[in-house]
């Protein structure tokens, strides 16, 4: 039983199912919440689920972090792929930046219009 749990393919399956569950939850939030804050937070959740999926899929049982320390002397195949980690590091910062910007827009919009409901944003559209 525990052997099965410790297999790479099994872990990948768990990661995939788990992260796509979060993905679904986030997307449903994006598409059905009315509050602008909640929508942007849901978008952030969706992004996080993708990060989780990506990082999780690159983990393999028995491999170490790609850092030379404590007994590991060489960079070789016994380490996990460092590129996804670097990519996710970059993407997380981008996500933070975008989230901050979008929340500022929401705050400003709320301040000007007193409205935070996405269905009541009617400033744009065809003039009649």
């Amino acid at each position: 039983m525990l052997e099965t749990l410790n297999q790479t393919t099994f872990l990948h399956t768990v990661v995939a199912i788990g992260s796509f569950t979060i993905f679904t939850i986030g997307l449903v939030g994006v598409l059905s919440k009315k509050n602008l804050f909640k929508i942007f937070l849901s978008l952030s959740i969706v992004e996080s689920s993708l990060f989780l999926f990506f990082i999780g899929s690159h983990f393999e049982v028995g491999k170490a972090a790609p850092i030379v320390a404590d007994g590991i002397k060489l960079f070789d195949g016994h380490m996990v792929d460092p590129v996804p980690q670097a990519m996710i590091l970059t993407t997380i910062v981008i996500g933070v930046a975008v989230l901050a910007l979008s929340l500022t827009f929401v705050v400003n919009y709320y301040r000007l219009s007193g409205n935070i409901d996405i269905d009541k944003m009617d400033e744009l559209g065809e003039v009649q």
């Binding site: 975008v98 979008s102 827009f105 919009y109 219009s113 744009l124």
Partner: peptide, 9 residues
């Protein structure tokens, strides 16, 4: 801001 929010989503 309304446009920007729409664009961002």
């Amino acid at each position: 801001y309304s446009g920007a929010i729409k664009y961002m989503i």
